[in-house]
């Protein structure tokens, strides 16, 4: 029996079962072809309205969503924190209710507070797609990572995936983790102990380590997370220079990396910090393919979620 998508929201990969993740990835596979055509547009979301509701600034994710919406022929409105009434003191819920009152079908939401999309999704009829909430979740980023791994490796089950960097503050790490575990991978979380909470090790098939060689040896996929300068100022590590010397992926550390391991990064990359510039551009890097796949994955998510809204 064919399993059908039934959720009006996509909030976190933690909620999804493996077949739901695979359904998104399979759908994305089809949509990837659309972007390779001469006419890069399909009428799948014609007549639907999507609001890109970005309370936290974002360029990459917003552009990717916007383009995905355009290629599906949706009507689009962009609302950012400064252009919304939130700066005038309106609550988030009131702003969302106003958007809903305009008969908007989908709200793509980015917010600096963990759980904000969950809070809104349970209170509006519109579908809500989480485009990143604080350090909690960023499901479409994880889905595009899974898509890229599956495309390159042919499978995910049994792979060893190492995620390296600022795990503590990373919604990408938290989302990748659930997706990878759900599809059967083993996950290593690595970085300085100040940025890799040991509580993660309580989860089955998750390992925590603080040593780069240990983190990369035997890994089939290495996902490097962006390190933010403000973390150094907050005292999590002594300097960007030391971080890159100890926890950056250098040419020297590459000696321990399997020759067929994928090098990934959610971007934007700090060249010479998380990874050596030549590695970012090297043959094992799939960083730009992740961007391409992000578009296909977001088209798939928009399509599936729009397909089960109540007014259909």
């Amino acid at each position: 029996m064919e399993q059908r998508w039934t959720r009006k929201d996509l909030l976190s990969l933690e909620d999804l079962s493996d077949w739901e993740i695979n359904l998104i990835l399979d759908t994305a596979q089809e949509f990837k072809k659309v972007s390779q055509r001469k006419v890069k547009k399909v009428p799948a979301l014609r007549g639907k309205t999507v609001v890109n509701f970005f309370i936290e600034p974002s360029t990459r994710t917003r552009i990717s969503f916007e383009l995905a919406e355009q290629r599906l022929s949706a009507d689009i409105i962009n609302v950012s924190a400064s252009s919304s009434s939130i700066s005038k003191g309106e609550t988030l819920l009131d702003t969302a209710k106003n958007i809903e009152a305009l008969q908007v079908d989908l709200i793509v939401m980015r917010h600096s507070a963990a759980g904000a999309p969950n809070f809104i999704a349970s209170r509006v009829k519109s579908g809500v797609i989480n485009a990143g909430d604080g350090a909690h979740s960023h499901p479409t980023q994880a889905l595009l990572d899974l898509f890229t791994i599956r495309e390159k490796k042919g499978k995910i089950k049994g792979l060893n995936v190492s995620i390296i960097g600022d795990i503590l503050h990373s919604r990408v790490a938290r989302s990748d983790l659930w997706g990878l575990l759900s599809l059967g991978a083993n996950v290593t979380l690595a970085g300085p102990a100040t940025l890799v909470p040991r509580e993660f090790a309580k989860i089955d098939r998750v390992k925590v380590c603080h040593n780069m060689r240990e983190a990369v040896e035997g890994a089939d996929v290495i996902n490097l997370l962006r390190i933010q300068h403000e973390r150094q100022r907050a005292g999590f590590f002594p300097s960007i220079n030391e971080y890159s010397n100890v926890f950056g992926l250098s040419k020297e550390t590459m000696k321990y990396v399997k020759p067929d391991a994928l090098i990934m990064h959610p971007g934007p990359i700090n060249r010479g910090v998380e990874l050596d510039s030549s590695i970012a551009d090297g043959s094992q890097s799939v960083i730009l393919e992740q961007v391409t796949n992000g578009l296909a994955v977001r088209m798939a998510v928009l399509f599936l979620v729009a397909g089960c809204l109540k007014n259909d």
Partner: peptide, 10 residues
Amino acid sequence: DGYWSVILGM
């Protein structure tokens, strides 16, 4: 600050 804050990213 414990397992759940780590899971929820709070």
